[in-house]
Design a protein around this nucleic acid. Structure first.
Lengths: 127, 127
DNA sequence: TACCGTAATATACATCAGGGAATAACGCTA
DNA sequence: TAGCGTTATTCCCTGATGTATATTACGGTA
């Protein structure tokens, strides 16, 4: 339920020291990033782009563009959406989407470890 | 002599795979980043904020703000500037600035290694 | 003292990513 | 068939960021 900033990056504590952002690049630019992956998870949770976007305080327009970007760059779509029908339609995370989520969080976790290691070295050198 | 983009991050090849940006956070936000460190080096080279900014295709105003931000957040100034005098004045990199440059490039180099390692793991998982 | 090139600073302008709102299409349900 | 909620798409507006431009301050030098 936490708010996500407008750049689709995680809110980071502004504690001095090494910091950074990571993402997975695709053919058209960013393929997977923190905000995108959280969006995927929210869609899995709510089954709706509209609800997922609202839960992140993100505009539907922006959410849709991110999903479209991911789907275009992936071999197979990460999200499959349907208009009309019961409840007006909805969206669902595919197996490919599930794999993308796992892939990114693994990368993300290793980066956090990397930053922590760097923090030890760098804070020593500051004074 | 290469052009630096407007966000003060290095121009990165858009090759698919793990990517990212790093910086060193200070009390007011970014303290050292790629663009800032290149700016420091250019000032060391030219002895002038004006010339350093031009060489990076950066506005003087922006360059000055970056320098001011770094100087305010560091224990001792990284850049010392003088108005008037021979040649109208100039700017010079301090020893503290020299250390900041080394510190950042070390961090940067280790991050490149980290990305390369991650690339091996991730490209394997894509197909 | 006049000149010079730079630092320092303020103001106006341009650009652009994203938000908000409006609208159409869709297909199940009652 | 009418209603519903969602996806999909378009247009306009705003806020933030950086550029461009102009002006002043400065202190050596000729």
């Amino acid at each position: 339920m936490g708010a996500i900033d407008r750049n689709s990056h995680e809110k980071r504590k502004s504690s001095p020291g090494p910091s950074g952002r990571i993402w997975i690049e695709g053919d058209e630019g960013t393929f997977l990033g923190y905000g995108r992956v959280v969006l995927l998870e929210r869609i899995r949770e709510y089954g709706s782009i509209t609800k997922a976007a609202k839960s992140m305080e993100m505009s539907y327009r922006h959410a849709w563009e991110l999903i479209d970007s991911m789907n275009r760059q992936a071999d197979k779509p990460l999200i499959e959406a349907a208009t009309g029908g019961k409840g007006g339609g909805g969206a669902r995370l595919t197996d490919e989407g599930e794999r993308a989520i796992k892939l990114f969080w693994k990368f993300y976790a290793e980066f956090q470890i990397f930053l922590k290691e760097q923090s030890k070295k760098i804070t020593l050198n500051l004074n």
